[in-house]
């Protein structure tokens, strides 16, 4: 099988598997909605305050939801041995890993984009910022999946990998959080956000090119 065909076959397989096990798709989404619901309950329902911190709330919740969903990225393939088969194939492991990450983002990242506008309206974010919020989520959540994949690949062989995963991954999420949160906040005050969006694009491109390498290396180490 040539490489592009193998790449798309892998994405297709992962999407079919995800459709058969819908809880993996739904759980991060429900978590995202729940966490955002908790904020007004915790800090009080003053519309001005909520509006001011809405970009931060939505982005931090997206970060946590993305991190929680990471475990399903390689877990079942690791348990049933198909991960070994993928790494043993004659194709470069980094490209196949990228296929798995893309499938994972389509299943767990994209749904966040669909519910985010609704939650943004709940929190009182003005209409113009909602568009920017969607744009930052579209550019930012794939980065979360790509960087997160490195962390899961390092910990997939461990029995108690969950806690350590957050310690590995969350510090690396900081730049995305800063630029995305700031872009939405600036958009709310009517300032231009081109710089932040451009930086997010460059972070995404860099993550697309660089992140699959350490992920593949870490997976080879983990199945050792």
């Amino acid at each position: 099988m040539p490489l592009p065909q193998a790449f798309f076959a892998l994405i297709r397989r992962d999407l079919v598997l995800a459709l058969r096990r819908r809880s993996e798709m739904i759980n991060p989404l429900l978590f995202f909605i729940l966490v955002i619901t908790l904020f007004p309950l915790g800090i009080g329902a003053q519309p001005q305050l909520l509006k001011a911190i809405a970009p931060g709330i939505i982005w931090v919740s997206a970060l946590l939801a993305a991190m929680l969903s990471l475990d399903s990225l390689f877990r079942s393939d690791f348990d049933d041995g198909s991960l070994e088969q993928i790494l043993l194939s004659s194709h470069p492991a980094s490209v196949l890993v990228l296929g798995k990450v893309i499938a994972h983002w389509l299943v767990t990242g994209l749904p966040l984009l669909i519910v985010a506008p609704l939650l943004a309206v709940f929190l009182g974010l003005p209409g113009h910022s909602v568009g920017i919020l969607l744009l930052t989520l579209l550019l930012g959540t794939p980065v979360l999946s790509l960087i997160g994949a490195i962390g899961v690949a390092l910990t997939v062989g461990l029995r108690r990998g969950g806690m350590i995963l957050s310690l590995l991954v969350l510090p690396l999420y900081v730049p995305v959080l800063i630029f995305a949160g700031n872009a939405v906040e600036m958009a709310g005050t009517g300032l231009p956000v081109d710089a932040q969006i451009n930086i997010l694009i460059s972070i995404l491109l860099m993550a697309l090119v660089l992140a699959p390498w350490p992920t593949a290396a870490a997976l080879k180490m983990s199945i050792n």
Binding site: L154, G157, L158, L167, P171, N224
Partner: peptide
């Protein structure tokens, strides 16, 4: 936090040769 992640990861993997590789990648 990055340092603590490195130390934590090393501690979490029992086989120290594998752990060293993981730490190097991280």
């Amino acid at each position: 936090f990055l340092y603590l992640g490195v130390i934590g990861l090393y501690g979490a993997i029992d086989d120290k040769r594998v752990a060293s590789k993981a730490v190097a990648i991280l």
